[in-house]
Design a protein around this nucleic acid. Structure first.
Length: 249
DNA sequence: CAGATCACCTGCTTGC
DNA sequence: TGCAAGCAGGTGATCT
């Protein structure tokens, strides 16, 4: 979002206690008149560095950042800048928007970014965990940035069963997992993500990666690789989709 | 302590 | 037709 870098927040408005989780009147006051120095991403977190403090956003499930649109029923925050208006919409309010002079503790606990971690530390960390690979991929302290859809797609691409134990993964298989993790995430970014319900980017454009899903949401259908019927189970309270033939335990 | 489970939300789908 | 129950998932709190 380099669009907003170098610009000034003229005023901010917040409308949801759930999303801000704090005193949004003081947030709005602090943000007023501050200049945007940079925008960066850490895992699934967005950090907007200001000349004083920083703005932290997490889109949760249904959060959307929109540029120059009219506020709607689900608008939870509005930032009027000197070059346009940034709107934060969030139907389910699982997202978070806050202002602080230091980074939220959640960011400090994050593991290395899934697109930046090197294989050696990935492999080392893998062997410290005894849980299933599916739940480990979702664990932001292990690597950050992977959600439920991508965990399923990565495991399918790597041909690894979601219940496989992380600590027992052989190096060769771990390397495959590592490579597919990077490849799937990179491809998803190039397609601007997965629009499952109504997700759009800041220009209102839908993502296209959902067209490339090979197991997520495909339960009951045929595996494109081997023809077996895709299964759906629950791991870590999350719907988990996999091919029982391509992804052997 | 690590891993598992629950709660928080709301729109959509399913089933009677 | 209508309405209740179930489902979806990221994260933090709580439980085992």
């Amino acid at each position: 979002m380099p669009l907003i870098t170098g610009h000034r927040i003229e005023e901010a408005h917040f409308y949801s206690k759930l999303v801000t989780r704090g005193n949004f009147k003081s947030f709005a006051k602090s943000l007023q008149g501050s200049a945007i120095e940079s925008v960066s991403r850490i895992g699934k977190h967005i950090v907007v560095k200001l000349d004083r403090g920083s703005l932290h956003l997490h889109l949760g499930m249904t959060g959307k950042l929109l540029w120059n649109v009219e506020p709607g029923n689900y608008t939870r925050a509005i930032f009027r800048l000197d070059n346009g208006t940034l709107i934060y919409d969030d139907i389910r309010q699982f997202g978070r928007v806050s202002y602080s002079d230091k980074l939220p503790s959640a960011i400090g606990r994050l593991g290395p970014d899934a697109l930046a971690v090197n294989f050696d530390s990935f492999f080392l960390s893998l062997h410290k965990h005894h849980c299933s690979l599916k739940s480990l991929l979702l664990n932001q302290r292990f690597v950050s940035g992977i959600g439920n859809i991508y965990a399923d797609e990565i495991l399918f691409a790597a041909g690894i069963h979601p219940k496989a134990k992380a600590s027992r993964l052989l190096k060769r298989r771990a390397l495959k997992l590592y490579e597919e993790m990077g490849r799937i995430l990179q491809t998803a970014i190039e397609h601007r993500g997965s629009s499952i319900s109504d997700y759009v980017d800041s220009n209102g454009v839908k993502g296209g990666f959902q067209l490339l899903h090979r197991v997520y949401g495909k339960a009951g259908g045929d595996c494109e690789r081997c023809g077996a019927v895709i299964k759906r189970i629950v791991i870590a309270q999350r719907g988990t989709h996999y091919c029982p033939r391509c992804q052997r335990p």
